[in-house]
Design a binder for these strands. Structure first.
Lengths: 149, 149, 149, 149
DNA sequence: GTGGTCTAGACCACA
DNA sequence: GTGGTCTAGACCACG
């Protein structure tokens, strides 16, 4: 897995690292249950401080995305949690921001949706989901439409 | 337009403000060509410093999202630009991150796509793209126009 | 003569106007001794305040570029002055800044010089200077080198 | 590197500072990859506020002239970019204005071009471009350097 | 009226 | 150590 960090970016390195790991897991480059590189190893490879790597790992742990075990080190967690509400709220906001920016910068609606679809395709675990479940998903969505507070 | 800022957030206030304005424009709460509040006014209303507001406005200006006219203050920009290249790259990365997070937190693929679609619907200018319901949309907007204070 | 003003620019309108007039005179669109538009006329045409036009004219007058006469209005002056030192200093600095920026942004030395030459060609009164005087100019320049007030 | 700021000038301090740095880089006083003073340091030395320095640095960063690394501070950027289109337009306009002013103030065409050439010579990276006459150019420069005052 | 700039000093996050 | 952010209040230029 390649991790690209921009030292000149305004985004803190530990956050960039955390994001890269999340995206790497999305792409399937790190499978569920698979081990992440040791803190020191990763720090050396990326040319950054171990403290920084540690910070990223701790953040992922707090988010429930990985587990950290003294014996096995860090590994991608079998993900089962779902703290629905505050989480979804954050998602919606970030997505709305992304969509608004897209719109304001001249990206058309269909283009935006195509991008969303293409991105979803690129998410490894998503590829596994077959189309049959499409219908039931549509149902779920309808229920959600009525929810809005 | 209501602007909610979280003083305890790690996200800088000026960035939160910028994001809120972008989202507000997406929602159609600020129409194209409409004026934004004066720097001082917004600063007072939001209980923040004028320089912080200024920073947000300058950022939006540099992004080509608003114009700042010495005489009339800031307003939502009619001009549509497109710097596709680095912009799209950034978009794709942010979207990929969002999708990866969604996946890891247990949001299914179809649910994710439904959320994207729903979000796109909520973007005001995007709604116009579906021409059939153009009129009823205009109606809605008018109601919103009268709602202000 | 076309005057293009950018209301959203950070450069004050009166300064933009002054610059546009200077450039217009350079291009030969306003000949020496020719009259400039009346303040009110120009203000109306450009859609700006007469005060603003006035400010630009006064600035040009102070610079010795135009004369303002109650009877004849403003007109391009037969230019004879030359307050050498502080002026040249300013020139050198601005030119140096321009060259440094060019260099830093990837414009090559020859390209820069070609641009300078091309620009000089576009200056109307400069075009009149025939090549024969090239020599005498070189002479003058040499003398000037020793001039220092 | 000496930085001279004019507190009474109409030009904002942060802009003067930015310009001085650009010119300093042109003169070769700050080499590519070299570190710039820390924000606080420069602020103290120049007797101005840190925010003012920061503003200048941020501007240079946005222009791609320097990079700012959280760990090492700011440094002259090795990367060379080229946004030709709007950039060149701006260049041409500024150069045209300069030429027009020169002309109107009595600076002859050849003198103007000589000034351009001399300025290009003074730009450090540009000097390297003239490989053939490297030596003789250096000679000329030396003489010129001595003529001042 | 508007935005733009600046200061002095403070606090924080990052590495 | 570094830069980033923020405040409160001030002053100025522009139009």
């Amino acid at each position: 897995m390649i991790i690209s960090l921009d030292m000149t970016s305004g985004v803190p390195i530990y956050l960039q690292l955390r994001n890269e790991i999340v995206r790497g897991m999305g792409r399937g480059e790190i499978g569920i249950g698979e081990r992440l590189p040791a803190v020191r190893q990763l720090a050396q490879d990326a040319g950054i401080n171990t403290m920084t790597v540690n910070k990223a790992y701790q953040m992922l742990r707090r988010e429930g995305i990985i587990t950290i075990d003294r014996r096995h080190g860090a590994e991608a967690r079998p993900a089962a949690q779902r703290e629905t509400e505050p989480l979804m709220q954050d998602f919606r906001e970030r997505l709305e921001l992304l969509a608004a920016e897209a719109c304001l910068k001249g990206i058309g609606r269909e283009e935006f949706l195509a991008l969303c679809r293409k991105t979803a395709e690129s998410i490894h675990p998503y590829r596994a989901e077959s189309k049959k479940s499409e219908e039931s998903e549509a149902e779920k969505k309808k229920r959600k439409g009525g929810r809005r507070k």
